[in-house]
Design a protein around this nucleic acid. Structure first.
Lengths: 203, 203
DNA sequence: TTTTGTTTCCAGCAAATGATGGAAGCGTTT
DNA sequence: AAACGCTTCCATCATTTGCTGGAAACAAAA
């Protein structure tokens, strides 16, 4: 039961955000009484925290998987695989992107501790993308590049409904377009070292 | 008075989103009674709509201004100027980015009409960035590239607090870093036509 | 001064919302 | 059967929230 509540809460918090979600919405969707929810999870904020931890854990596992997939491949291939994998994965579980963006951008009327898990993720993926030479040091500019990359995917996943209407596309074409757009943006920038034509520096 | 309410509403809706904002919060910040707010603006949803229209209008004006600034310049310079201008502008008025992202990503428990103004913006800026050869037709893939670009800026603006903590930076260094990261990503991708080395096609 | 129209505030309602106490259900152990 | 622990539900509370009626305050016109 506790698990089922968490699953549903994840979806609903992802759709409506913290303040847009009521404990009654969750309980009703699960099909239980609201006090059963409180029995298992305590106050709303605690459930929300649990949801966030849950999605971070899932995301962490996926990133490790992707890291394994791309290890040893040449850089531009690494990028392509990573983009394909992460895009498909997140489109299957859009709550992940939704919740991450919510946490980045939305203030929760009650203070919530800032996140701590993100840097670890970024360090791993940045390293396997060849962005940082040595895993120990992770300079700020590399972190920002990673943020830009991850956010670009999250945006397209989270904004699907809005953007579908705007573009007049269907889901499948949209997903394909997202991958192409991401590659269009990312590969030239990150693979510049591979390309003997482009100078490595651009400040 | 009506105007002052709108200003404050803009900031607060931007920070907390639709559901995270209460009409009392707005009235209190303005320093007026809550019914004065209702007298001028009607229900909460109407005020929110007015706020959204307001920020779109501001954004539209700024985009026109930028369009004028970059006209005639070579492409990579156009990109650089546009990035600098838009980044500075949005950091001064982060509610704009906040509200736009909120509208993209967050469901509002009550249905709200999807937006209509975005395509026009995108068309203009895409044309002046050299993304579409002829202003009349605006293919889907070009639209998606524009979305990626605009969202990249909005993300960094909206997520400033979160990302500052994550990066351990200060505001000024952060803004500088945002511009550099954006250029790092965008210039190689969009200026490929200028660069005789990179082939134009990348599918 | 009275009138008229506009704006602001006070008081309060109805519904929604977060949260709880306590009783009932239920499976396991004794 | 009785006792026990765990889980679920019913009833209910206090607060928050969106919203409104009506009275005061104010300013300009008559």
């Amino acid at each position: 039961m506790k698990g089922r509540i968490l699953e549903v809460a994840r979806r609903i918090f992802g759709e409506y955000g913290f303040h847009g979600t009521t404990t009654r919405m969750i309980a009703q969707t699960v099909g239980i009484d609201i006090s059963t929810l409180y029995y298992h999870w305590g106050e709303k904020g605690d459930l929300y925290e649990a949801v966030v931890l849950d999605i971070y854990e899932d995301l962490r596992e996926k990133l490790i998987e992707v890291e394994g997939l791309i290890r040893g491949k040449p850089l531009s291939e690494r990028l392509e695989i990573a983009i394909n994998e992460m895009t498909d994965y997140l489109f299957e579980q859009p709550e992940i992107s939704n919740l991450i963006l919510f946490r980045y951008f939305a203030k929760t009327r009650h203070a919530s501790p800032l996140d701590f898990r993100v840097p670890e993720f970024m360090s791993n993926i940045a390293h396997s993308m060849g962005l940082v030479p040595d895993k120990a040091q992770f300079p700020v500019d590399a972190k920002m590049k990673m943020l830009a990359v991850m956010n670009a995917i999250h945006n397209f996943v989270s904004g699907e409904n809005f953007f579908l209407a705007l573009l007049g596309s269907e889901h499948e074409a949209y997903v394909k377009g997202v991958k192409e757009t991401l590659k269009f943006l990312l590969i030239p920038a990150f693979a510049s070292g591979d390309n003997p034509c482009r100078p490595a520096k651009n400040a």
